[in-house]
């Protein structure tokens, strides 16, 4: 699971209204290089919840994202590289996603988060 995927995901437990962002607990992750696509980054920036991304990046030991960001920063090559790296190049292999409201843990095994709910959570 990459951090872009984490940024889309809300907790789906019954009764949870906000459920975003899921807290990331990462035990193992890998990095794989992806070609930088400036147009994509500029476009997607406006849809990204920045605090959630920066928080998730810290959970995988990447502290290079500023706490806050605005569109003007997209002109700086250095910022684009960091944004790109956090969003697309880090794969969480083992760990968990934790619902911010209920504390329910969703395990991540072999890179795949398991978001299946029990009967009483639907």
């Amino acid at each position: 699971m990459r951090l872009l995927t984490h940024n889309m995901l809300s907790s789906n437990v019954k009764g949870v209204v906000d459920g975003f962002p899921l807290r990331l607990e990462a035990e193992k992750w890998v990095e794989k290089e992806v070609e930088l696509n400036v147009d994509f980054l500029r476009h997607i920036f406006h849809k990204i919840e920045w605090k959630a991304l920066a928080g998730a990046a810290r959970a995988v030991g990447y502290g290079e994202l500023p706490d806050e960001a605005d569109a003007a920063m997209l002109d700086a090559e250095d910022f684009l590289r960091r944004f790109h790296h956090a969003l697309l190049e880090i794969h969480v292999e083992e760990g968990a996603l934790v619902c911010p409201d209920t504390g329910r843990r969703f395990p991540i095994n072999k890179g795949i988060p398991n978001m299946l709910l029990n009967e009483d959570e639907i």
Binding site: L9, S11, N114, L117
Partner: peptide
């Protein structure tokens, strides 16, 4: 599916979820 991705040397994220209970932020995809 993840073995297939490895065989083709492609990156793809996966998630185990019932589509009925999927909760994503709208319009990011």
């Amino acid at each position: 599916a993840s073995e297939n991705a490895v065989d083709l040397e492609l990156e793809m994220d996966f998630m185990q979820c019932d589509i009925n209970n999927l909760r994503w932020r709208d319009h990011l995809v």
